[in-house]
Write a protein that binds this DNA or RNA. Structure first.
Lengths: 137, 137
DNA sequence: CTATTGCTGGTAGTAGTTATTATTTGGGGT
DNA sequence: ACCCCAAATAATAACTACTACCAGCAATAG
């Protein structure tokens, strides 16, 4: 990885950001994390949020999710798992599906590429958005 | 979808952009498409590229791919298929793997979400980058 | 306890994309 | 074949998510 990975110090800012991420399952944006963090450390800067999200990602403590949107979301659970993304409200939900690691070997065998990971997302409409779409028409 | 979908006119700009995308398997960025298009229509504007990429996406003629990077790539093949992304050079390759549509039904059944699609990407190192990493050490 | 050096907040800058606007053009109607 | 006009265009300004910079601060090693 880059030199982001050689981070060692556990500052209160970094600790707080990690706690915020682990305490939610909403896969928040950097901005949402910033708003939450400001409630505890009012003069924390957005640059610190991004820097620490980068560090935590580089050390494998969190995951960055980048789907169709213009911004990233972050996941405090670093274990590979699949997501559902609502095309209407943008909500991201965790799916309780077995992770298909055997596919990675299959790809490696058939292509002679070095495969280190994979990810999968499902798209559609969440329960709330299905209901509201009906009401509109 | 949005009002992007009610596009009807086939302008020479739109036609050219579609031809460029269909004539490559490199999953290019908007900027690369722009550079190629300028060779044919020198004063085509970048706004036109983005607008038409949006239209073509809305009508299902192309796909937008957004992975970890800060920019989008576009795919002239609108049929669902899986990709491999090189973590070193960023190259995106098509994979010849069966598409697991049955998973969508499985998710729908187990979650009562309305599932309309899914996608999967594999990460790792391409042949060229594997070789070069060895040479560096 | 002190020195080191990574981390911080503040701020300026950048890349990729979207919005605005005056002008041009594709394509249906006559 | 010509007119009409909504939709598309080129040019440019604006925006958003993110990154870089830097002087001062603070977490850990010795």
């Amino acid at each position: 990885m880059s030199d982001l990975a050689k981070t060692t110090r556990m500052t209160r800012q970094k600790k707080l950001i990690l706690e915020i991420l682990r305490g939610t399952n909403t896969h928040p944006t950097a901005d949402w994390v910033y708003e939450q963090a400001r409630k505890v450390i009012p003069d924390i800067s957005l640059g610190t949020i991004y820097r620490n999200l980068g560090h935590l990602k580089a050390t494998g403590e969190i995951m960055e999710l980048s789907y169709g949107s213009t911004f990233s979301r972050y996941d405090g659970n670093p274990q590979n798992h699949y997501h559902f993304v609502c095309k209407r409200c943008g909500r991201v939900l965790d799916l309780d599906l077995p992770v298909l690691n055997e596919l990675e070997e299959q790809v490696a065998r058939r292509t002679s590429l070095q495969v280190t990971g994979h990810r999968m997302e499902f798209y559609g409409y969440c329960r709330e958005c299905c209901r509201e779409e009906k009401e509109e028409s």
